[in-house]
Amino acid sequence: MKKIDSHQHFWKYHPVKDAWITDDMKVIQRDFLPEDLQPILQENNVDGCIAVQADQSEEETHFLLGLAENNDFIKGVVGWIDLRSPDLVSRLDYFSQFKKLKGFRHIVQGEADENFLLGTAFCEGIAQLEKHHFTYDILIFPKHLPVAFEFVKRFPNQKFVIDHLAKPNFKQTDFADWEKGMREIASCPNVYCKVSGLVTEADWKHWKTSDFTYCLDVVTEAFGINRLLFGSDWPVSLLAATYKDSFDIVADYYSKFSKEDQEKIWGGNAIAFYNL
């Protein structure tokens, strides 16, 4: 069984560029590079990973591609590109030469406009991805789910994946709006979901495994086994847990599933989605 961590990050920490890493996140205010992750993956019997952008620049995309070129265990990259740029077609042509570049992401959760995904220029950009077989990672909060549903319906042939279950707030117990939004968007067969970033949305100091059960029940029922991907969100997840802790939450929940189903969540679906 191939195990793939479908979502993690690398960075060379810079206090201005990485201003989102605030002082209550001191544990991740440093560099995180392949030599930090590789032994952790080996300890947890994970065969490879997908490196996902954390900065919105083409430099970030090249940085991750460089790391992937020099480290075989980095199986793919989700980079950043300006999807609203008038030069997008030529930039996509350029980036399509990089075999490990699998798709793109924009930090939509950080945009002031809650309808950002429906912007004309952004949607025109998304429409260009399919011909290059690029995927798109959707990074949003629960409040964005109704807009995201309208968005994905416009592109029935584009492969989408929702990062971190759309970040339900595990510190509360009212998941009604989140659940409604997730069940709606899961009705689109081209949308997948990453079982990732769980502890980051929980109480960092006092979470327990049972905090995540309800939401895992919802996404497992809504998306089905064939559209769920394990991801760690390392090193952001270190704010609340070790890599093994994050891994074990997923392992514990899916331990009752068949071996075949577990193989899909741990790697098979990531291999298919990102064409690894």
Rank of each mutant, 00 (worst) to 15 (best):
K194H: 03
V16S: 12
F175A: 07
G79F: 01
V152T: 15
G66F: 06
D203A: 13
A19S: 15
Q128E: 14
Q53V: 07
V147W: 06
S85G: 02
G103L: 10
Q172R: 13
G181D: 09
W207K: 12
E59K: 12
H132Y: 15
G224S: 10
K12F: 03
F116K: 10
P235I: 08
K12N: 13
G103W: 09
P15E: 10
F257A: 13
Q172A: 14
T213A: 08
T61Q: 02
C215I: 07
V78R: 05
R227I: 02
Y254G: 06
V218G: 01
K264I: 06
Y243G: 03
T61L: 04
K75M: 12
I74C: 04
A240N: 10
E263I: 10
A251H: 12
M25F: 14
T220Y: 05
P235E: 11
T200Y: 09
L92A: 11
D248G: 04
K205E: 14
L92H: 07
D217G: 12
I126H: 05
D245G: 11
K99F: 05
D113R: 02
V218W: 07
S6E: 01
K256E: 14
N226C: 03
C193S: 02
A186V: 01
I28Y: 09
K75G: 01
V218K: 02
D177Y: 13
L117W: 11
E114I: 15
L83D: 02
V78P: 09
D177L: 14
N70P: 03
T173D: 15
T173I: 12
W204G: 10
F257R: 13
K208T: 12
Q29F: 05
E69K: 15
I4V: 10
A121K: 14
H144F: 05
Y274Q: 05
Q97G: 10
D113N: 15
L229F: 03
P189A: 09
A112W: 05
D24M: 07
G103H: 05
L41W: 00
D261V: 05
K256L: 12
G224C: 02
K259F: 13
V191Y: 08
N190C: 03
I28H: 07
F273S: 06
L65P: 13
F104A: 11
S96M: 01
S85D: 08
D245P: 02
Y253E: 08
S232R: 00
N226K: 09
I40M: 00
I107V: 15
E260S: 15
D211A: 05
S232E: 00
I138M: 01
A251I: 05
L41K: 00
E111V: 09
K26H: 11
D31F: 04
L117H: 07
T213W: 02
G231L: 00
L83C: 04
S196N: 02
H144E: 09
V16Q: 12
L92Q: 06
G125Y: 03
F212L: 08
D177H: 13
T200N: 13
S210Q: 15
N45L: 07
V77I: 13
K131M: 04
D23M: 11
